[in-house]
Amino acid sequence: MDVARPRPPFDPELADVLVTLSAQLPSTITPELIQPMRQAMASGASSKGELVRRGLVVRDVSVPSYDGASITLSVVRPARRSDAGVRPGFYYAHGGGMMFGDRLGGVGVLAEWVLRYDAVAVSVDYRLAPEYQDPTPVEDCYTGLVWTRDHADELGIDPQRLIIAGSSAGGGLAAGTALLTRDRRGPALAGQMLMYPMLDDRDQTSSAAQIDGVGVWDRGSNRTGWSALLGDRRGGDEVSAYAAPARATDLSGLPPTFIDCGSAEVFRDEDVAYAYAYASGIWVAGGQAELHVTP
């Protein structure tokens, strides 16, 4: 039986919030809770309404993925067109442990970026595990990125300023998509923003052992998410770096990268290790990389 380890403290203000959340959410997400969590995390019309209230417009586009099935992309842009010409573009993958969430799940982040930088965002509704296991989620993300590049003129995006981003599971998918586009010589990326990314299926880090039965995404939830994505392959030798980017042995040829995480979360150690492995090579080559660990 695993023994919980001492861990860095939660921020006092957030610890108070966790007390409230713990009465509403399970400490560990198990397979039978996937459907209830999907219902609880569904965004839909309320998310679109928030974007409209903030002066943005949303257009949904259906595109064929690698296997011929259709996936949906949401294009988010300012309602008032500026004279800026082509804009920076953000290609975004939402969080949700690979099992739940939707393309407008990161609506607050998308709205802030689009408004602050007069940008265009494209968010992908990748298919979810366990119904769709690896490689479907990352292939869906790659499909949407290629579509965004191919339609940059129509979208008003400067293809030289296209950044891939994602949070949690979406951060892992963004990292995997960046590896795919490098290896397939796909769309050029100006950068990648990986926000507390989910990168490693092997469940061997100290931070995973520390965050067990506490917080909003603990070790058990993480195992559930990786098992949903990989099935019996989780933790084994047959897992691709595109699915679990922490397994990548070659991080050369990737764009400037920003990674953030918290000191008291499951993903801390895998994120720091990925950032260090990536950034050391980038810094030696004279490039840019940032790692932020928030107490």
Rank of each mutant, 00 (worst) to 15 (best):
Asp2His: 10
Ala4Met: 11
Pro6Lys: 03
Phe10Tyr: 13
Asp11Gly: 02
Ala15Thr: 01
Val17Asp: 09
Leu18Arg: 02
Leu18Ile: 02
Val19Gly: 02
Ala23Gly: 05
Ala23Leu: 01
Gln24Phe: 00
Leu25Gln: 14
Ile29Lys: 08
Ile29Met: 15
Thr30Ser: 10
Glu32Leu: 01
Leu33Gly: 10
Ile34Asn: 03
Pro36Val: 08
Arg38Ser: 10
Ala40Phe: 02
Ala42Ser: 12
Ala42Ile: 02
Ser43His: 02
Lys48Gly: 06
Gly49Glu: 09
Gly55Pro: 06
Leu56Glu: 13
Val57Trp: 00
Val57Tyr: 00
Asp60Arg: 11
Ser62Ile: 00
Ser62Arg: 10
Ser62Glu: 13
Val63Ser: 01
Pro64Cys: 05
Pro64Leu: 07
Ser65Tyr: 05
Ser65Gly: 14
Tyr66Ile: 12
Ser70Ala: 12
Ser74Lys: 01
Ser74Asn: 03
Val76Thr: 09
Arg77Ile: 00
Ser82Val: 03
Ser82Tyr: 04
Asp83Thr: 14
Ala84Leu: 12
Gly85Cys: 08
Val86Ala: 15
Val86Lys: 15
Arg87Met: 03
Pro88Ala: 05
Gly89Gln: 09
Phe90Val: 13
Phe90Trp: 12
Tyr91Thr: 09
Ala93Asn: 11
Gly95Ser: 03
Gly96Phe: 07
Gly97Val: 11
Met98Cys: 03
Met98Gly: 01
Met99Gln: 11
Gly105Ala: 11
Gly106Arg: 01
Gly108Asp: 14
Leu110Tyr: 01
Ala111Phe: 03
Ala111Cys: 04
Glu112Asn: 14
Glu112Gly: 13
Trp113Glu: 14
Trp113Phe: 14
Leu115Gln: 13
Arg116Cys: 09
Arg116Val: 10
Arg116Ile: 03
Tyr117Asn: 15
Asp118Trp: 01
Val122Gln: 05
Ser123Glu: 02
Pro130Val: 04
Tyr132Trp: 13
Pro137His: 06
Tyr142Cys: 09
Val146Trp: 07
Arg149Phe: 07
Asp158Glu: 09
Gln160Met: 00
Gln160Tyr: 00
Arg161Ala: 15
Gly166Asn: 06
Gly166Tyr: 02
Ser168His: 09
Gly170Tyr: 05
Gly171Asn: 08
Leu173Phe: 03
Ala174Pro: 05
Ala175Trp: 02
Gly176Trp: 03
Ala178Met: 10
Arg182Thr: 07
Arg182Leu: 07
Arg184Lys: 12
Leu189Gly: 08
Gly191Phe: 06
Pro197Gln: 10
Met198Pro: 06
Asp201Asn: 08
Asp201Leu: 06
Asp203Ile: 08
Thr205Ala: 09
Ser206Met: 08
Ile211Glu: 13
Val214Ala: 08
Val214Leu: 11
Gly215Trp: 05
Val216Phe: 01
Asp218Arg: 10
Arg219Glu: 08
Ser221Trp: 07
Asn222Lys: 04
Gly225His: 04
Ala228Met: 07
Leu229Lys: 11
Gly231Asn: 06
Gly231Met: 07
Arg233His: 14
Val239Lys: 11
Ala241Glu: 15
Ala244Lys: 07
Ala244Met: 04
Ala246Glu: 06
Leu251Cys: 05
Leu251Ile: 02
Ser252Gly: 15
Gly253Asn: 07
Leu254Gly: 12
Phe258Ala: 05
Ile259Asp: 02
Gly262His: 04
Ser263Pro: 00
Ser263Met: 03
Phe267Ile: 05
Ala279Gln: 02
Gly281Glu: 05
Trp283Leu: 13
Ala285Ser: 15
Gln288Cys: 06
Gln288Asn: 12
Leu291Ile: 06
His292Asn: 07
Thr294Phe: 12
